[in-house]
Design a protein around this nucleic acid. Structure first.
Length: 276
DNA sequence: CGTCGAGCCTGAAGGC
DNA sequence: TGCCTTCAGGCTCGAC
């Protein structure tokens, strides 16, 4: 589900919530592997002394700053968070519930069980491998140019590589490449000089538009009927992602789907030429 | 360094 | 209706 815009939207919702300033009581892990650091017992010993100070985002991680620790949550494919009354019945797909002394709780629902929670005294050790934040002031055209020239990998997997640029996932990678008119299999260091500035702009455009629209919601049904996700509106703005067989909004050519680096990739074969 | 396949998991959707 | 296959917004590991 979540890429940078979705994670940012969720982090903002939590930051504006009644949980900020609240004391943590304890957690229950219904799927133990969700907790990637230590045991439930040590987790609970630690958080019992902590308050939630603030919530932000780094890459695709939700960063919960506690009094002296940090709780990092990665939603992976199907992770969802919601603030609920502490006595709400446990959902069949609920993997964690973090209880607060305010009688509220943070509920983590994750059908596929890929999501992970990390409790760290020094979260930078976990986050240190992440690349640059694409919406930060530090991410300039020349930063991007330097990253690209060091890599011969194809641009699609390059954009998905979190150690280079943090936060881009499959949706926004395809959308950015369409906007910049770049074929997804172009080697990063072979992208024409004239295309680097458009790519930089496209990455920032698609991500900030995603945030403005409170994220992209795909599919239908209960999987998305949750928390802030139901307000997501970016799915109606997508130009190529999961639009194979439909017309390119720019030139009307049929959009194609190909598997590149084991990820489904959507692009316009006319607008996005390999040698352009 | 780069690519590839498998693995982690479950459920929805499509073909027959 | 039921069975089987394919697919999924992410990431890691080991082999080559």
């Amino acid at each position: 589900m979540p890429e940078l815009p979705e994670v940012e939207t969720i982090a903002r919702e939590l930051q504006d919530s009644s949980l900020i300033g609240a004391s943590i009581s304890h957690a229950r892990f219904f799927w133990p592997k969700t907790l990637a650091t230590g045991s439930e017992e040590t987790f609970n010993q630690t958080v019992a002394t902590q308050k939630l100070k603030s919530v932000s985002r780094r890459g695709k991680y939700i960063f919960l700053q506690l009094t002296t620790y940090a709780l990092l949550i990665h939603l992976r494919m199907t992770g969802k968070l919601a603030i609920i009354p502490a006595n709400t019945p446990i959902d069949p797909h609920e993997r964690v519930r973090l209880y607060f002394s305010s009688q509220e709780a943070l509920q983590f629902i994750d059908t596929r069980k890929f999501g992970r929670w990390y409790l760290h005294a020094k979260p930078e050790e976990q986050l240190g491998t992440l690349g640059i934040e694409p919406l930060s002031d530090e991410f300039t055209v020349s930063t991007l140019k330097n990253l690209l020239k060091k890599s011969s990998t194809r641009i699609k997997p390059f954009l998905l590589n979190q150690t280079k640029i943090a936060g881009i996932g499959n949706i926004y990678a395809d959308e950015a490449l369409w906007e910049a008119k770049i074929h997804p299999e172009t080697p990063a260091n072979k992208i024409a000089e004239s295309k680097i500035k458009p790519l930089h702009k496209a990455i920032r455009n698609v991500l900030s538009q995603g945030i403005e629209n409170m994220g992209t919601r795909l599919g239908s049904g209960r999987a998305n009927y949750y928390s802030v996700r139901r307000k997501a509106a970016n799915q109606d703005k997508l130009k190529v992602f999961r639009r194979d067989g439909l017309a390119c909004p720019r030139c009307c050519t049929t959009i194609v789907r190909e598997v590149i680096a084991q990820r489904s990739t959507h692009f316009c074969p006319v607008c996005q030429q390999l040698n352009a």
